[in-house]
């Protein structure tokens, strides 16, 4: 019952066999060993599993891997440059203490990149509104909002 799919993840094409019911998040974590994408709920409420599919921020826990056959997926592992330079969003989370336990952080950053692309000049309130689907239990969100604002400013300058 395995089906063969080819998914380009962070620029590399991967051909693999999956069960039709395999969730994208499990495909990434279990088959490709890309464990930076996390699972935080069963109900599409927490955003921990956020990745980009063909450029859009989506929930990899409510997407089947097989639906991504032929598509481009970007995960947290694909944010930094090949030389190890952090993406502005990664640097901003570090500099603004936008993370504590780090578990929600990959999904939060992938959502944030989507927000910045859609609304480069978002106000703090707009950033908060757009983060409605990402839960964090550690930070109280204040430094996450600051991180995203800082990254947006940095990306606008560069």
């Amino acid at each position: 019952m395995g089906e063969t799919i080819t998914v380009t993840v962070n620029g590399t094409a991967h051909t693999a066999e999956v069960e039709p019911r395999t969730l994208l998040v499990h495909f990434l974590r279990e088959q490709l060993n890309l464990t930076g994408t996390h699972i935080g709920c069963d109900t599409s409420t927490c955003g921990c599993c956020t990745v980009h599919v063909d450029g859009d921020a989506v929930l990899s826990c409510s997407t089947l891997a097989i639906q991504c056959d032929g598509r481009e997926v970007r995960t947290v592992e694909g944010l930094q440059s090949e030389d190890g330079t952090l993406h502005p969003i990664q640097q901003a989370f570090h500099e603004n203490h936008g993370l504590q336990c780090g578990y929600c952080t990959p999904g939060m950053m992938m959502a944030a990149v989507g927000i910045i692309e859609q609304q480069p000049n978002a106000t703090d309130d707009e950033i908060r509104a757009a983060l409605e689907g990402n839960l964090c239990r550690c930070t109280g969100y204040q430094n996450i909002v600051a991180s995203i604002r800082a990254a947006a400013d940095q990306m606008a300058r560069s």
């Binding site: 039709p20 969730l23 409510s62 089947l64």
Partner: peptide, 25 residues
């Protein structure tokens, strides 16, 4: 299966267990 944003959570919770789905994408 269209966007899956309602169906997939229900399938994950096994409140829905279709034996077959057809992807409309």
């Amino acid at each position: 299966l269209s966007g899956g944003q309602s169906l997939m959570p229900m399938m994950r919770l096994r409140l829905a267990a279709p034996h077959a789905i057809v992807d409309l994408s």
